[in-house]
Design a binder for these strands. Structure first.
Lengths: 108, 108
DNA sequence: ACCGGTATTCGGTGTTACCGTATACCGGTA
DNA sequence: TACCGGTATACGGTAACACCGAATACCGGT
């Protein structure tokens, strides 16, 4: 599936939040995870801008750790604000997706 | 539900396409339909820019008709290109939403 | 000494939803 | 007649977002 970019707006950040919530992880691994999930066209740069935003908005805790295979990695984990943000993201997602599905089914 | 704006990016146009597909209609009525669907914060101006975009991209046929209660209405209906666009929209939606749901369920 | 894979950063771009405002037409009311 | 509220379209500007390209950095193997 190609050119999903517009449809991912507003959801990609939530996805990254969920991935971090599942496990403390870092930028490059998050990109791979998204690719594996089916979002094959999501690129490093996109994820890093999201990560920077999350950090700026104080939704994550960041720990820099050396890597054995390259430059140091910045590991991200959610703080309380991040978990709250994730919860509202899922609430919005449920709301929006259920309503769009209803429209799709010719819903009134 | 408030502040859905970011999440609607990329989907709102598809919703408008679907509404027009169901029935030849006009801007103000489309806005009302979206509000009824649960997208209460979507405003006239937003819908008109989408309509203008659809027209510019030659996805709709436009017919101006007089109204009994106000200025003339611009009625929109889909042409072949519009129906094709709608089909790809739903395909993308199915793809994206299923994958996000999978992520939500702790999917691998 | 070089190269490929891993990893982060940053400046710039295009698309999008939203907002405010202006314009237009009609019916009712004072 | 003059005004106002509801219906309807149009438009310029803004902020947020995903994306792109290029630069930088570190390591292991050849």
């Amino acid at each position: 599936m190609e050119d999903l970019t517009e449809m991912l707006k507003g959801t990609l950040e939530g996805c990254v939040l969920e991935i971090i919530n599942a496990e403390e992880t870092y930028g490059w691994a998050i990109t791979r995870r998204l690719n594996d999930l089916g979002f094959t066209d999501v690129i490093d740069g996109t994820v890093y801008t999201i990560l920077l935003r999350l950090e700026r908005n104080k939704l994550v805790q960041v720990t820099k750790r050396p890597s054995e295979v390259g430059p140091p990695r910045k590991f991200y984990s959610l703080n309380d604000a991040g978990r709250a943000e994730l919860a509202t993201f899922w609430a919005k997602w449920q709301y929006v997706s259920s309503r769009i599905d209803r429209l799709k089914e010719g819903g009134r």
